[in-house]
Amino acid sequence: MTAPAATVRVRGVKKEYALGDRRVAALRGVDLEITEPGFYAIMGPSGSGKSTLLHLLAALDRPDAGEIEVGGERIDQLPERDLTLFRRRRIGIVFQQFNLISTLSALDNVTLPAMLDGVAAHERQAMGLKLLHALGLHHRSSHRPDALSGGEQQRVAIARALLFEPSVLLADEPTGNLDSHTSQQMWTLLKSLAAERRLTVLMVTHEPSAAVHCRRVFVIRDGRIETSFDVDGLDAAELATRTQLARR
């Protein structure tokens, strides 16, 4: 599978939010470009705008200014309906809190986007089981989320995100609710997925130990990309120093 030339491009993106009576500028003109598949991280202190940026890339919100291109598609000016379809078919999103539907089984959670797309039941089932098998959860396909461990739930969420074979996978603090051992497994998984499927995986994190698995790190501070650098053999401590972030 060959990824398009620029998988993610952000130009001069700005975003403000209302907070009570005042307006807060979350992004003040962000420029970012990713041209090759791989595992990437966006790091920054609390309130830096990293989650806001991810939300915009995931078409969960619209920028106030600037351009956003994901997977070769300009999304900043798409109408509501097309944004919804974009989220459904073109990208995958993984959340810190897993965000599985508690009343659905693992298989039904994985195939939810396909159900929304009107895909026939047998076809959905085949797609879902294939993904669960690939992620080592075939034997848990009929279990509900409350019967799964945190790591298993997050893998189900990843499987859901990969259902329509997107070119971009966005992850918002995917290991925030997991223990360190499981977190390590999760980072390894994401890295391998990026390599095997030629995915662009863009992960928001504040953990240097997560970012060391990435190819490149973008550091965001006060609503702007302050710097970016290749990880290339850095350890967590060095990475933390580069990013000037305090350990949690």
């Binding site: 509501e80 309906r81 919804t84 989220r87 999103i93 965000n99 929304l116």
Partner: peptide, 9 residues
């Protein structure tokens, strides 16, 4: 979440 994964209004 359902909206996130592509459910329309």
């Amino acid at each position: 979440v359902t909206r996130c994964v592509g459910a329309s209004r």
